[in-house]
Amino acid sequence: MTDFSFINAFSGGVMIGFAVILMWLFLGRITGISGIIGGIVMPEKGQVSWRVIFVLSLVTGGAIYPFLWGRDLAVTLDYSWPVYLVAGLLVGVGTRMGSGCTSGHGICGLARLSNRSIVATVTFIATAALTHTVFSLITA
C-alpha cells in the first residue's frame, strides 16, 4: 500500500458530500460535473449562467486551497500530451453517452440508490482499473 492520509481522504469526501447536498436540497440540482459543463458547451436557455458560476467556484476552491491549508496543490502527470488528448476525448464522449461521471453517478447517483448509477459506477471503476493495468504493462 502507498502512503495515504485517511483524515484528508475522508474529510475531503465529506466536503464533496456537503457540496452535492447543498445543490440538491436547496436547488434540486444534481452536481454532476460532466452534465454541468455539457450544459455550457451545449447551452439551454436560462441554464447557462448558474453552470458557469459553479465551474468558476469549483476552480476557485482549488485556487484558495494552498492558502487555507498551507499545502501545495499537487498535480503529478506521468505521461506525455497525446495520452491526455485521447483520455479527454474518451471521458467527454463516454460521460455524455453514459449520462454522468464520478460525481453524477458515483456520488449523487449512489446516494439516490439509483440502479443505473450503481451499474455505471461499477462499470467505469472496473474498466478504469483494467485499462490502467494493461496500459502500465505495455508502457513499462
Binding site: G12, G61, G62, I64, L68, W69
Partner: peptide, 11 residues
C-alpha cells in the same frame, strides 16, 4: 457548493 467541491477534491 462549487468552492466546497473544489476544496474537497484538493484536500
Amino acid at each position: 457548493s462549487g468552492i466546497l467541491f473544489g476544496l474537497g477534491l484538493s484536500v
